[in-house]
Simulated assay, not measured.
Amino acid sequence: MYRVVLNRLSVAYLVVASVGALPLSAVADEIRLKNGDVITGKVVRKFNEKVVFKTSYAGDIQVTWSEIETIKTDEPLAVTLTDRSNLKTTLESYDSGKATIKLAQLDDDDEDGKKQYEEKEIPLADLLYINPTPELSGVGVNWSGRINLGGSVTQGNTDTTTLRLDGESIARTLNHRLTVAAVVNRATNNGENTQFNNRSSIKLDRFISNKWYVYANNTLENDRFRDIKLRTMTGIGSGYQIYERPDRNLFVEGGLNYVTVNYYDAENESYPGARWALKYDHRIFGGSTQFFHEHEVLLGLDSASNALAFTKTGLRFPIINNFNASIQYNLDWAGQPAEGRKSTDSALIFNLGYVWQ
């Protein structure tokens, strides 16, 4: 009799344990790789042929999309297909290399009054993005940018004030990217200006493929201590976006610019030039710190001495939420500066900043 009771208790325990385990497995997405490995967790997003998968044992991991044999998600995800259509659907694979998606509601309800959906099986290769950013989906704009502030005030035997303000804002859609940037530097020593310059720029990129784009740019610059009343650089060109990811960005571009310089004292000048530029940033130290480097070079086509170079290299460190601190080294060089001026200006800069994206 005791044996019968124990057996019944064992069966009841197994049933309760099995039922209790169902919700745990029901909330997990699953991908099966071609080598037979199975990974459970939650699908975060897919971009650049990588799917980011959140696991309880290893955090976020990246899996190459072409190595996935089947996929199953328990909740609807935003999906962009290769034909640029967007939908919200669960994914489930019944055949290797394919996934079933829910396309649209049918007119008829089922017996319980619930809406029915048309299901369609597609190759996994037709899934372009999962949970894409607004610009990748092609139906929105992704705004990102930063603003930095630095300065100091000393009083006593020395009376100095320095102020630096710079910012950049980027609006990205599927086929366009607008970048607006500006920097202002001011410094006084015992009431006299020792630094007074401004630089602003605007650039519009038009992507003609996933990587290639054409652009138009314009830059305005003023610097009293370099005798530059107004320098204008306007041009067009082409660029190639090597990386465009949350953890890494890199593009190179080149084109033609026309440079016009109005001086305070020297004779005004203008000339055509060839332009080369690079912009790179990369997350390091586990993604908490960002290394960045930018440079822009202009070579005068009428004279090799009409050359300009601008570089910026540094690190951004997170503080709290979207606030960060940065240290950077800037160098500006002119092959033919105004009379009595030096060719090179450099600065080591410490800033506090705010980033949005």
Score class of each variant (00 low, 15 high):
residue 228 I to T: 05
residue 206 R to Y: 08
residue 46 K to S: 15
residue 322 N to E: 06
residue 71 I to E: 06
residue 340 G to L: 03
residue 142 N to P: 06
residue 71 I to W: 04
residue 85 S to N: 13
residue 182 A to K: 07
residue 217 N to Y: 03
residue 348 L to M: 01
residue 74 D to G: 10
residue 13 Y to M: 11
residue 226 R to E: 10
residue 223 D to R: 06
residue 178 L to V: 01
residue 352 L to Q: 03
residue 135 E to D: 15
residue 240 Y to A: 01
residue 231 R to T: 05
residue 92 E to S: 13
residue 40 T to G: 11
residue 344 T to M: 10
residue 229 K to D: 14
residue 135 E to L: 06
residue 48 N to A: 15
residue 262 N to D: 12
residue 305 S to F: 11
residue 126 D to H: 14
residue 129 Y to K: 10
residue 155 Q to M: 05
residue 318 P to D: 02
residue 101 I to Q: 00
residue 352 L to G: 02
residue 75 E to A: 15
residue 41 G to C: 06
residue 32 R to F: 08
residue 262 N to A: 07
residue 334 A to L: 09
residue 18 S to D: 08
residue 176 H to G: 10
residue 66 S to Y: 14
residue 33 L to H: 07
residue 109 D to P: 15
residue 331 L to H: 07
residue 204 L to F: 04
residue 112 D to T: 14
residue 72 K to G: 07
residue 38 V to K: 11
residue 296 E to A: 09
residue 283 R to T: 13
residue 280 Y to W: 01
residue 32 R to K: 15
residue 162 T to L: 06
residue 41 G to F: 07
residue 293 H to E: 04
residue 212 W to L: 00
residue 101 I to F: 03
residue 274 A to K: 02
residue 28 A to L: 10
residue 187 A to S: 02
residue 163 L to V: 02
residue 71 I to P: 08
residue 219 T to C: 07
residue 59 G to D: 08
residue 80 T to W: 12
residue 156 G to D: 02
residue 9 L to T: 05
